[in-house]
Design a protein around this nucleic acid. Structure first.
Lengths: 350, 350
DNA sequence: GAAATTAATGTAAGCGCTTACAGTTTTCGG
DNA sequence: CCGAAAACTGTAAGCGCTTACATTAATTTC
């Protein structure tokens, strides 16, 4: 004969999500045991575990994120800061990164820096403040203060899209200089002597700088004074590629080949060349870098360097998780790139 | 004459990050005041506030994320689940979404569903469990149970890439059917009668379904039986577009126009047509949808529907923040699309 | 000028979870 | 069978922050 007054409908009493306590009570165990069932199942007796997990399922219990983060001092969340998600360059790597993280129960926090170092520094602080356990960053170029800050806070991080065996930081990437040198060699091997380079601003972009160095190295190998290369810096974008190509094609004598820092610039360059009535590669050869989808739809098909974006993203995820869970110190990984010789590169006209 | 034993070097004592308590002590106030300075500065006296903020800066204090989330019951983190980040379709909208969130002090949590409803359901649960205060989802098609679950938990969410004034859910998007109808009308207006439609599987994709309905509507308007349309379903990808186009071009009689569900399929289709020695639009016209970068580099330029991806991302962010901070109920927003008539659409050959 | 507001700050109770430590059973070698 | 080690489970102390409520000081009102 319970007085209904004292036995209110549980559904009415509990408006909010169930807590460990609710689960513990319902399963007849302590909260510690519930927690252990979820985090270290091996340390709990078989029978207890199944009983607790059954209750967990029935109640639809899901641990409170904040409480867990506070008590365990980790969030199983990993941050990534890329220059941009707009084009396929980073998006594909990010996608693979996220997939791999998900496989291991981690979640991805994303921010973009728009190629601005200040913005990147901000985002790094923000993501760490938001509880990121580790970080994926693009390239090596950043103020030493930031790196020191990360070290001081012991925030694991991996540098992607670049590789440097000597750097103290863990990196997963490829040798931008060598990759571009290999591509540029193909250009010079075809006899091009008036060559222009369309690159992203190299000031705070080690990948762009290394790629330019690769072109210069190839030029030198081909017996050409690297200083005769016409170098034009412009932010990565289709329109910038087109605009700068337009200017370059106004030069006399005109370059017979234009080596672009990435496929997006190359796409713009090819469009601009065509708009001017020039044939590619008849009148001017164009090359790119990255081998994103666009390279396969351009007419002519774009000669470029294939970058294993997905492998890179996946490797980054694995390394960070490895550090977080096993406290290891993985070695940097150098991935291979491949020169993709396609229609946009031909011999010079003259 | 303090015994050094009792006054250890603070630098040695405090290895970990400063807490509110540290700040409070250094500023000579209570922790409540420190918290208020950070969260509701107007409620604190001018002098106190500046003093506290100075200490905050000096100590490099940053509130612990977990503790804050636990106590305040919100994370200022918003989740987004998109089918994929691989191509520019969603990446661009996501970029704008993230930028706008950042402007308001929110962070973006990202997951991708690979167009799988089960995966999406998983990701929704995961992101909410990870503390997402609100969610951005793509399209309306999902199990009612999921929507109910979101409602029950009172998780604000916005549906993007689709618009439905009558739906109970908040949406920010465009009328997929009408947009495609407008484009298809142009195709039929040029005299095409043997038309194929290359679409993503429509089973669990309302956008694809609506677009197909748009083509059928246009066909009907043009006095054509919609059932004479050759409809081919294939997942969005360049290779699938190419493969299916290859098959379509083997038909006799061959379609004179192929309307594709997005630009990626269209790019594959054009490549396949060319590989078969067919001229576009001479032998076959091709249209896309989205107007991503690729549309402007294809040869010929791709006739497609321009979708305001960035506007959509931005509007979604604003709506969610508005709900979170002001408890409002924004109305769904319908954005305008525009048919971009370009080279890939011409009159039929025969 | 006393009472009533308003403004500024402090006190302290959690938020829900993890985990060191302690206590209780089992298990097992000898 | 006994004592020690191993295997489970419980107790309870925080983790660092926010915020309802209490307190005190400064203004305002009549």
């Amino acid at each position: 004969m319970a007085d209904p007054e004292f036995q209110p409908d549980p559904a009415v009493v509990k408006r909010s999500a169930p807590t460990v306590e609710d689960v513990a009570r319902a399963a007849g165990v302590s909260t510690a045991t519930v927690s252990r069932c979820l985090n270290m199942p091996a340390k709990v007796g078989e029978a207890t575990r199944t009983r607790v997990l059954k209750v967990v399922a029935e109640l639809g219990y899901s641990p409170n994120f904040g409480a867990r983060a506070l008590a365990a001092k980790r969030t199983r969340t990993i941050g990534a800061i890329v220059p941009t998600m707009e084009n396929a360059i980073f998006a594909r790597g990010l996608q693979a990164f996220q997939e791999e993280l998900g496989l291991h129960g981690y979640t991805l926090l994303v921010a973009s820096s728009s190629y601005s170092p200040e913005r990147e520094a901000d985002q790094i602080r923000t993501l760490v403040a938001r509880g990121a356990d580790a970080l994926l960053l693009i390239g090596f170029d950043r103020a030493p203060a930031i790196t020191e800050w990360l070290e001081a806070r012991a925030v694991p991080h991996v540098i992607a899209w670049a590789y440097d065996a000597d750097a103290k930081a863990l990196s997963v990437g490829f040798d931008n200089r060598e990759a571009m040198r290999a591509l540029a060699s193909e250009v010079f091997a075809r006899g091009h002597r008036r060559v222009a380079v369309l690159t992203a601003p190299i000031a705070q972009n080690d990948r762009a700088r290394e790629r330019l160095a690769g072109v210069r190295a190839a030029a030198a190998e081909a017996g050409l004074d690297p200083d005769t290369l016409r170098v034009v810096e412009t932010p990565y974008s289709f329109d910038n590629g087109a605009a700068q190509m337009d200017l370059l094609m106004g030069d006399t004598p005109r370059p017979t080949a234009v080596i672009c820092g990435n496929d997006i610039l190359a796409a713009g360059a090819i469009a601009a060349a065509r708009a001017k009535g020039l044939r590619v590669p008849g009148d001017v050869s164009v090359t790119g870098f990255d081998d994103i989808e666009i390279a396969r739809v351009l007419d002519p098909l774009l000669t470029t360097v294939h970058v294993p974006h997905r492998d890179m993203g996946r490797a980054c995820a694995r390394d960070l998780i490895d550090i977080l869970e096993n406290g290891t110190h993985p070695a940097s990984t150098e991935l291979r790139t491949e020169v993709m010789l396609r229609g946009s590169l031909g011999p010079p006209a003259d």
